[in-house]
Computed example of a mutant assay.
Amino acid sequence: MYDAIVVGGRCGGAATALLLARQGHKVLIVDQATLPSDVRLSTHLIWHAGVDLLHEWGLLEAVQETGCPLLTGFSLDLGELALRGQPPGSTVGAAMAPRRLALDKVLLDAALAAGVELRQGVTFEDVLKDGDRVTGIRGRLQDGSAFTAHAKVVVGADGTHSRVARAVGADTYNESPKEAGSFNLYSYFTGVKLDGVEFFSRPERMIYAWETNDGRSVIGVIQPGGAPRPARDNMEAHFQSELAALAPGLASRVQNGRRDDEWLSGAIATFCRQAAGPGWCLVGDAGVTMDPITAAGISNALRDADLAAALIHEGLQAGHSLDDSLANYQARRDAVSVPLLQFAQEMAKLAPPTEDVFKLFMALASNQEQIDNYYGVFGQTVTPMAFFDPANMAKIFAAA
């Protein structure tokens, strides 16, 4: 009998298991893969709120030692206007973009050091139940033999296509098809000089660039999900022509470097899932999958892990009810995640800016405090509701 079984040992699952083990709980991680392993479809960015959590958990230095720098410069190029700023209210005051092989290994090593057990090569098949309550999992080992384990709570950290979510029948809401979101084309480059995190916003396009491990950079072009997509054999020409037309300064810097990996691309459907039920909960993409245009996925997973572990720990204490604690998870997760999901989904349309949007950015141009607050929406140190509140909008225009 475990206190918790975590299905999925990547960033969200490893972080949840780590935090529970540090609080004295008996935790098992199961994963079908051999960990750690790379996650190819990831742009790696961790915003300020996520980096602050790594610092709080004592893991930031270990992530930096993988060859991943802190990112302290942020710019949004709108064509004739560029906004530079910093999200406020951050302890570390930086973002970072570690490759998943590096980040997940740091988290998993810390979890194992805290006493977490790891079973790899376990294919999850279903949950075990006592009535309506989840009491464990069953699956198959690599040799085909049956595997079962029992726990007071099962945590699904197994990604967008979560089998745990399907097994417990988690309801889905706030759904959008991938055609309503963005399509991302990117690769890795060496020898490209960057100034921190760079965004270039154009009608129906968003270009981004930032440094990851060992001097490499991830650079990509985002377009609406419903727009025509480049053929596999035309991705290089498409990428270079987009940069040359829309961000010639970045295009010149890219020409001075070289691409050292294959082209990666994709679009995803987005949604929220029911966060918890009797004996189970979901963290990370298993619970909320957002459009990647705001690069919020890893930060969301770390935040979910922090919240879920705190509530599970509370519920496992004498005199407390685990189900009552988990019942609070949905509302507290959604209070943060749903506005961010809606913000990302609106951005993913990449619609040409309206007159009101033009006016807002012109008003921001001379107001560094509010530029920083706008970046705080991405850094998750300022909520979308606070920044876009009518009172704050009036304050921005009054100052302008």
Results as ranks from 00 to 15, higher is better:
residue 187 S to A: 14
residue 319 G to M: 00
residue 367 N to S: 12
residue 71 L to Y: 05
residue 150 H to A: 13
residue 35 L to P: 03
residue 331 A to H: 12
residue 108 L to E: 00
residue 335 A to I: 03
residue 99 R to E: 15
residue 272 C to T: 06
residue 358 F to R: 13
residue 143 D to L: 12
residue 334 D to M: 03
residue 366 S to V: 09
residue 141 L to I: 02
residue 375 Y to A: 05
residue 56 E to T: 14
residue 210 W to C: 03
residue 123 T to L: 11
residue 397 F to M: 04
residue 242 E to P: 00
residue 74 F to N: 03
residue 219 I to W: 08
residue 319 G to V: 01
residue 269 A to K: 11
residue 397 F to I: 06
residue 239 F to G: 05
residue 373 N to Y: 09
residue 33 A to W: 09
residue 256 N to T: 13
residue 250 L to I: 03
residue 332 R to K: 14
residue 315 G to S: 05
residue 23 Q to Y: 01
residue 353 P to N: 06
residue 366 S to I: 03
residue 276 A to N: 04
residue 308 A to Y: 12
residue 66 T to H: 00
residue 335 A to Q: 13
residue 106 V to F: 07
residue 87 P to I: 12
residue 383 T to H: 05
residue 281 C to V: 10
residue 294 T to H: 14
residue 342 Q to L: 14
residue 28 L to Q: 08
residue 195 D to K: 13
residue 15 A to K: 07
residue 283 V to H: 05
residue 166 R to C: 04
residue 32 Q to W: 11
residue 198 E to Y: 03
residue 160 T to Q: 15
residue 210 W to V: 02
residue 72 T to R: 15
residue 217 S to Y: 02
residue 210 W to D: 07
residue 294 T to P: 06
residue 380 Q to T: 10
residue 221 V to I: 13
residue 114 A to R: 00
residue 348 A to I: 10
residue 37 S to A: 14
residue 283 V to D: 01
residue 362 M to P: 05
residue 314 E to S: 15
residue 311 L to F: 11
residue 141 L to Q: 11
residue 338 V to M: 04
residue 133 R to M: 00
residue 220 G to M: 00
residue 236 E to P: 08
residue 150 H to Y: 12
residue 62 A to E: 10
residue 376 G to Q: 01
residue 305 A to K: 11
residue 235 M to E: 15
residue 237 A to K: 15
residue 181 G to L: 01
residue 166 R to F: 08
residue 251 A to V: 08
residue 16 T to R: 06
residue 224 P to V: 08
residue 346 E to I: 08
residue 227 A to P: 01
residue 166 R to Y: 09
residue 93 G to R: 05
residue 352 P to Y: 10
residue 347 M to H: 13
residue 174 N to V: 15
residue 115 G to Y: 02
residue 334 D to I: 01
residue 357 V to A: 15
residue 8 G to I: 08
residue 244 A to E: 13
residue 93 G to C: 10
residue 287 G to A: 12
residue 377 V to I: 12
residue 201 S to T: 06
residue 212 T to Y: 05
residue 259 R to G: 00
residue 258 R to L: 11
residue 54 L to D: 02
residue 190 T to Y: 10
residue 35 L to W: 11
residue 48 H to P: 01
residue 359 K to S: 13
residue 265 S to V: 08
residue 365 A to E: 12
residue 398 A to L: 13
residue 196 G to L: 11
residue 215 G to T: 07
residue 228 P to W: 02
residue 96 M to S: 10
residue 280 W to C: 09
residue 159 G to K: 00
residue 255 Q to S: 13
residue 317 Q to C: 10
residue 48 H to Q: 15
residue 387 F to I: 00
residue 279 G to M: 08
residue 250 L to G: 04
residue 289 T to D: 04
residue 56 E to L: 10
residue 73 G to V: 10
residue 133 R to A: 02
residue 397 F to T: 07
residue 207 I to S: 07
residue 348 A to Q: 07
residue 296 A to K: 14
residue 109 D to T: 07
residue 382 V to C: 03
residue 19 L to M: 11
residue 168 V to N: 01
residue 180 A to C: 04
residue 291 D to R: 15
residue 101 L to A: 11
residue 396 I to Q: 06
residue 284 G to M: 04
residue 267 A to T: 02
residue 352 P to N: 07
residue 45 L to T: 00
residue 6 V to A: 03
residue 139 G to R: 01
residue 170 A to D: 02
residue 341 L to D: 05
residue 261 D to N: 13
residue 286 A to R: 06
